[in-house]
């Protein structure tokens, strides 16, 4: 079982979470061309290795956070709250 540390709730089973996949830069929808927008929607790097991705604690605090994980062996390097630069496993409230 893979354990993912939620920055608010601490380490929990991965079955509590919903993965939103790797984080991609979102173009400004007012100025983006169709092809830029579809590139954002669909194209992915899908790396075999470290990936920066977004998760949702569906069966927990129901908050979003970011994580850095290795897709080859599911090592979680760090998780952090959105909009914050700080990284860490953040078990404090």
């Amino acid at each position: 079982m893979i354990v993912l540390p939620c920055p608010w709730c601490g380490p929990r089973n991965v079955t509590e979470f919903h993965s939103l996949g790797e984080v991609v830069d979102r173009p400004d929808p007012r100025t983006a061309t169709r092809s830029e927008w579809r590139t954002y929607l669909y194209l992915r790097n899908n790396p075999a290795g470290r990936v920066h991705e977004r998760w949702f604690h569906r069966a927990g605090c129901r908050r979003f956070f970011d994580a850095e994980r290795d897709t080859r062996d599911n090592t979680v390097f760090s998780t952090w709250r959105l909009g914050r630069e700080e990284t860490g496993t953040g078990v404090e409230a």
Binding site: M1, N13, G21
Partner: peptide, 13 residues
């Protein structure tokens, strides 16, 4: 499985 992985390990759950 519900998230991206290149790992082929089975899981108990």
């Amino acid at each position: 499985d519900p998230f991206a992985q290149y790992s082929m390990r089975g899981s108990l759950d």
